[in-house]
């Protein structure tokens, strides 16, 4: 089974971006989301994050996402970077 080996962060707290922090988990995929648009889009952002995590075959992961209005593709890109930095494949900058 795939898993991350260390904590990692990607993205920024700047407008139209999202900061994502991941760490190895033990209780399923646990997501904590802060977003300036949580009321309107919280559900959609959570779904994007959880589906992306699952697409890696991960079953346990702690995720903190601080969203400043990022678009869907940006959310996915930041998460992929965080996961690769956390040990799921080659790292990249971003």
């Amino acid at each position: 089974m795939k898993s991350v080996v260390k904590p990692a962060q990607a993205g920024t707290l700047e407008s139209n971006d999202i900061m994502i922090i991941v760490e190895p988990g033990a209780n399923g995929i646990v997501l904590e989301l802060e977003s300036i648009v949580k009321k309107q889009y919280g559900q959609a952002i959570s779904q994007t994050i959880i589906e992306t995590v699952k697409s890696y075959g991960l079953t346990d992961l702690n995720v903190k996402a601080i969203d400043k209005g990022a678009l869907d593709y940006a959310i996915r890109a930041r998460l992929v970077t965080a996961l690769s930095r956390a040990g799921l494949g080659p790292g990249s900058e971003g």
């Binding site: 260390k6 904590p7 990692a8 962060q9 920024t12 707290l13 700047e14 407008s15 900061m19 922090i21 760490e23 903190k64 400043k68």
Partner: peptide, 21 residues
């Protein structure tokens, strides 16, 4: 101008690199 965001991003990135989340 978002300078606080830049500072906190840079600092928490380094903390995470050191295993602090």
């Amino acid at each position: 101008q978002g300078l606080m965001a830049s500072l906190v991003t840079a600092l928490t990135r380094e903390q995470t690199r050191r295993g602090i989340v």
